[in-house]
Design a protein around this nucleic acid. Structure first.
Lengths: 343, 343
DNA sequence: TTGTATGCGTTATCAA
DNA sequence: TTGATAACGCATACAA
């Protein structure tokens, strides 16, 4: 007879539980995953044995045997950008009471990096995949299509989902912000943009559409940089813009960080906001409503996007894809003092 | 003869590679993990076979067989707090080119939640554990001590590490900020604190120590709340503090969000900064140097803490624990306009 | 509703 | 340096 020497740390296994409960191992397995398929009697015996032994299922063994890991793969372009931090929080909060774990990775706004990470994730056979944006590389898109699990593209909506989508239209957001500035009386409205990732580009497109429709567009009003966004950069971009166009009477900022930089620079240079220059941001961070003057911004529903993405994926995992494969959570213009020129 | 019906998705396995390369499976395994133990010859053959088949090792099978997952478990109290977001970014960046993955979880500043998540993580037999702070519950601490893997406590330093530590002294940070305010001429210095987690408490302790040493302490100067920190809250706490002590001539804020709220409120109420009220923050977010007036703050090295934590854990995994089990990365006082009363 | 036999892809053990 | 064999802990397929 062979002596069983445990290689593992000696943690109780499903077999130990089965022995103690006087049932077959598979019954324990079932009792844990599909309790309704096991008789009330055995279920209780098994639960007692589980408690007594302190049994905890082994994720790895489970994943190996079922060829499916209880993992949500999540790809975001940045971990520190508050916008994505909130999306990620929504995802974690939604999943914290489920058996699913989160596998998070940072693409650093690189399509190639995204591709590489996707391949890595796929090798784990995740239960679902959540990716940011709709501009995957061709190979990445193919990987997603063949992923064999629900896929949710977040932050944006677009015409051709890999599987599901939840987000909003950045172009419309940019347009709404710009139209608001025009309506409030601005004529020489600058666009300030950092990073200029695809979503930033579309906000710019919205700005341009609104400006052209009003006959106000002038390419010299646009100031962008590939450099990552920051409050400091907002100040610098604004200085550049003002040097180019001294008659500037409004700015639409790609995001709130930039807007804050503009606001501070206006204070420093004693430029009246909104009288001389009106400011509109994007995303509506908490601080915009406290700023002085408070700053108009486009409110986006980041946390909710995270929640919805998980909800949609869950439905799909359950077999019933949601009614609408593309959900547009929209945005809201929050009018504040920084664009209120009525006085 | 039995027909092998693959249950998995038909991905190539190590056996396929072995067959193609004309070697044993275990040799392939070794060639991948410890190349130096396989002859140059076979190594190349195997590499060719791997490339040809597009073989990717299965994490789950590997973890199951070796009873060790290539996973770093990371526990932080918040995902959106910029401070932790940067720590997490440091961790991810350090690990992105390693075989290790990151398993991140959010404790929501709850010791019990941390305990629960720890148990969850431990069931995966992680390669290392990174936890925030030094105030684990007794049971959590025991779990960490028995984890059987390197453990790094981050953000703070303290006398009794579970295993390793990297951070700085929040008490000294609070003291340095307060002493600076005193030296710059303030006498009625308020403390504004949100959340009041253990690290906030220690900053308060530092404030109190400095104030008492100068004979300036007055409990009514302290305004705190368990509510999570935000810019809005900074404004509200400041209003409360000012209502209590109209003679306030300086505030030390628990963190930069609060400080920003104070700054905006000063603008709104036309209170001169720093002449009437001086402001000092904590953490030194990017925006503090751009604010108008620029805001004095305690610079902390969040990203570096993440990097160091991984570096220490890596050393320990390699078998050679680092020289110093406790690394104090310190902090720096950044003097700016908001506390410069010389004019 | 419950159990038996077997496979999942990899690594540890031990022998050659 | 290389390989055969037996775990690792659990779930699938199928039978009872």
């Amino acid at each position: 007879m062979k002596l069983r020497t445990r290689r593992g740390g000696g943690r109780p296994t499903i077999a130990d539980v089965a022995r103690l409960a006087g049932v077959g191992a598979i019954t324990v397995s079932r009792a844990l995953r599909e309790p309704e398929r096991v008789s009330e009697n055995l279920r209780q015996q098994i639960q007692r044995a589980v408690d007594e032994l302190g049994y905890v299922p082994d994720h790895n063994a489970r994943a190996l045997a079922s060829a499916r890991a209880e993992v949500f793969g999540v790809l975001v372009p940045s971990l520190t950008n508050n916008v994505f931090a909130e999306v990620v929080r929504g995802i974690y909060d939604s999943l914290s009471d489920s058996p699913f774990r989160v596998q998070l990775a940072n693409t650093h706004y690189s399509g190639l990096e995204e591709e590489r990470l996707l391949q890595l994730f796929l090798s784990q056979r995740p239960a679902a995949l959540i990716v940011s944006g709709i501009d995957q590389t061709a190979s990445a898109r193919k990987l997603l299509e063949d992923a064999g699990c629900p896929v949710v593209q977040i932050m944006e909506t677009g015409p051709d989902p890999v599987d599901m989508m939840v987000g909003f239209s950045h172009l419309e957001g940019g347009r709404a912000a710009t139209e608001h500035l025009i309506e409030s009386g601005c004529r020489r409205i600058g666009f300030l943009g950092a990073r200029m990732d695809p979503r930033s580009q579309r906000r710019l497109a919205g700005y341009r559409a609104a400006m052209e429709a009003a006959g106000l567009f002038d390419p010299r009003l646009v100031t962008t940089t590939p450099v990552p966004s920051s409050v400091t950069l907002g100040r610098d971009l604004f200085r550049d813009a003002l040097a180019k166009i001294p008659s500037l009477d409004g700015v639409f900022c790609n995001n709130d960080d930039l807007a804050l930089g503009v606001l501070f620079e206006c204070h420093r240079a004693a430029i009246a906001v909104p009288q001389t220059i009106s400011i509109c941001g994007f995303n509506d961070l908490d601080m915009m409503q406290v700023a002085f003057p408070s700053v108009t911004s486009i409110r986006t529903h980041r946390y909710e996007i995270g929640r919805q993405a998980v909800a949609m994926a869950m439905e799909a995992i359950g077999g019933s894809w949601p009614q609408d494969r593309v959900i547009d959570l929209g945005f809201e213009l929050r009018r504040r003092e920084s664009t209120d020129r009525r006085h």
